[in-house]
Design a protein around this nucleic acid. Structure first.
Lengths: 159, 159
DNA sequence: AAGAATCATGACGATTATGTCATGAATGTC
DNA sequence: GACATTCATGACATAATCGTCATGATTCTT
C-alpha cells in the first residue's frame, strides 16, 4: 500500500498555490524542487480535475478553482492517485481467471473496504485550507528557532 | 493510493493455507487462479517474511508459521507491500533536490502520518484468524441461498 | 504586429512493479 | 539409488508508472 508520486507532488503544488494565492509553473517548480515540465504536467492534471484555474499569457498562472475550505483532500487524492479500493478492483485481480475466484463477497474484499473507510474518514474531513494553515505555521517556525531569538539576515558585503 | 497486486494475492494465499491447514503450490494455484510460478513466488516471499513454513519433497508443502490468531494482518501487508508512509518517504520524494524542499516537518507529511495511523488502527487489530473465519462463512453461504430453502437443481422442462 | 511570458498536449525514454521461466535442490517412496 | 514430488532462486519479459521533451497555442505589452 503506497502513496503515488503524483499524489505527493500534486498535493504539494496545490498547497503552494493556495499559500501564494496564485503562481506560475516556474515559481512552483522552484518552490518544490521539480522540473518545469514535471510541474506543468502535475498542474495540468489538477486543472483538468477542476481544482485549479489557469490563465495564459503575461501575468498568467494558476489559482485555486474554489476557496480552499471547499477543496476536500480526499477528492484531490482520488483525482491524483485513484482510490484504494474501487468497483473494478476485483476484476483487475482475477489472476488467470476471467472473474475473481471468490465470487460475490470475499474475506479480502471486506478488509479492503474497512481500510478504505478508515482512510476516507480522515481525508474527507480535511480540506486544503487545513493543509495551507499548517504550511503557514511551519513557514513561521523557520524564523523562530528554539531559543526564541530573531534570525538576523546575513548581509552580503561589497555587492 | 493503491494496494499492490502482491498484497492482494499474497494475503489471499495466506488465507487459503490457513483454511486448509497445509497446501502445496499447485493446490493454491488452482484455488486462487494464479500460475504455479506466480504462486511459488508469492509463497516464497511469505516464507522469507516468516509467515509460512515449508517442507520439500513428497507430502511437503506450506503451512502457517504460527497460529492464525498470532498473525496480524498489518504485518502481512507491510511485508508484502511496504508501508504507506515510512522514514525514507521524504527522501524518495525530494524531486530534483537532494533533500525535500520542506525541511523538518511539512504539511503533507503530517497528513500522511494521520492516514497511516488510521490504516494501522484497522489492520493492527485484525488477525489472519478473522479473515479465515470470514472465508469459512462465505464458503457456507454458497450452499445457503437467501430464502433458506435447499438448492433444487432446476429440471429442464420440455418447453 | 512583434515579442515575451505563460499554459497545453502528446510522444518519448527511464524506472519500477508484475508475472514468467528455466534450472536446481531437498525429501520421501520403492 | 532411481524417481516422483515438492520447494528455491535468479534471470528474464512485459506492463505500468514516472518524468522529460519538443512543439504549439494564448495573452499581454509595446
Amino acid at each position: 500500500m503506497k502513496f503515488s508520486a503524483q499524489e505527493e507532488y500534486g498535493l504539494r503544488c496545490l498547497i503552494q498555490i493556495g499559500l501564494k494565492g496564485s503562481a506560475t509553473i516556474p515559481e512552483i517548480s522552484r518552490d518544490e524542487g521539480l522540473s518545469e515540465h514535471h510541474t506543468a504536467k502535475l498542474l495540468s492534471i489538477l486543472r483538468k480535475e477542476r481544482f485549479l484555474n489557469s490563465t495564459r499569457g503575461h501575468i498568467g498562472g494558476y489559482r485555486l478553482a474554489r476557496a480552499p475550505e471547499k477543496i476536500v483532500v480526499g477528492e484531490v487524492l482520488a483525482a491524483l492517485g485513484g482510490r484504494l479500493y474501487d468497483e473494478e478492483f476485483c476484476e483487475r485481480h482475477s489472476g488467470l481467471l476471467s472473474t475473481c475466484a471468490h465470487s460475490g463477497s470475499c474475506a479480502v474484499k471486506s478488509l479492503w473496504s474497512e481500510v478504505q473507510a478508515a482512510v476516507d474518514h480522515v481525508v474527507s474531513h480535511i480540506t486544503l485550507a487545513d493543509l495551507i494553515a499548517n504550511a503557514q505555521k511551519e513557514a513561521e517556525q523557520l524564523y523562530k528557532p528554539r531559543n526564541g531569538a530573531l534570525l538576523s539576515i546575513p548581509v552580503a558585503s561589497g555587492t
